[in-house]
């Protein structure tokens, strides 16, 4: 225990909002997401021994949270549906579900969507690693959708600084995304 003293205050400050965003990229229920993040912190604190600085703390916490989300899905699945019976009607004949569902979303679209979702989350993570001023510029431009003049005034930069910063930030973001390990 003594070797594993961790600054829990710092941990919450630095990781909680990221973990909540990660959870919300996969869930719709904010209260549930907050509960799962709290459970994640508690699990992490009680099994710090298994962390041993092997990986980045955020990666480690995210993998714990991801397992908790999957567990939640599994429980929800057994509670609300019987996956096999939905394919058959009451006489036990297979429904023509292929025909009935021919207008449903294609697997390809779903896979694209998931990949996109993960890329979006990873990008969010990468932006946090940018130097503070660049991060401020990117946040004002894309998240707050401010116009260039306002960004320049707010960040005290010239218009040419603005596109130079955007250019460098994008190079870093591209590099960071390229190195991402997707869960």
């Amino acid at each position: 225990m003594s070797e594993n003293i961790i600054d829990t205050g710092k941990l919450v400050e630095e990781q909680s909002d990221y973990l909540l965003s990660f959870a919300m990229s996969k869930l719709q229920d904010l209260e549930l997401a907050k509960d799962l993040v709290q459970d994640t912190f508690v699990s992490a604190i009680t099994k710090l021994d298994s962390f041993e600085n092997r990986s980045n703390i955020r990666t480690w916490l995210t993998s714990i949270l991801n397992r908790k989300i999957i567990d939640h899905w599994r429980k929800a699945e057994t509670r609300y549906t019987d996956p096999v019976s939905s394919f058959f009607d009451q006489e036990g004949k297979a429904r023509h579900w292929l025909v009935e569902k021919k207008n449903s979303t294609s697997v390809e679209t779903v896979v694209d969507q998931i990949t996109r979702e993960e890329a979006t989350m990873e990008l969010y993570n990468c932006i946090e690693k940018l130097p503070p001023k660049w991060r401020g510029v990117i946040a004002s431009k894309y998240l707050e959708e401010k116009v260039s003049d306002d960004i320049c005034k707010e960040m005290e930069i010239t218009p040419s600084n603005l596109w130079v910063i955007i250019h460098r930030a994008k190079l870093l973001l591209r590099d960071c995304l390229g190195k991402a390990e997707f869960q």
């Binding site: 909680s16 909002d17 965003s21 990229s25 907050k34 990008l123 969010y124 894309y142």
Partner: peptide
Amino acid sequence: ELMQSKRFRHLSEYTF
């Protein structure tokens, strides 16, 4: 395109 997506903008709104 990614940073202008609704999904991305929403992500930053979830905070404790």
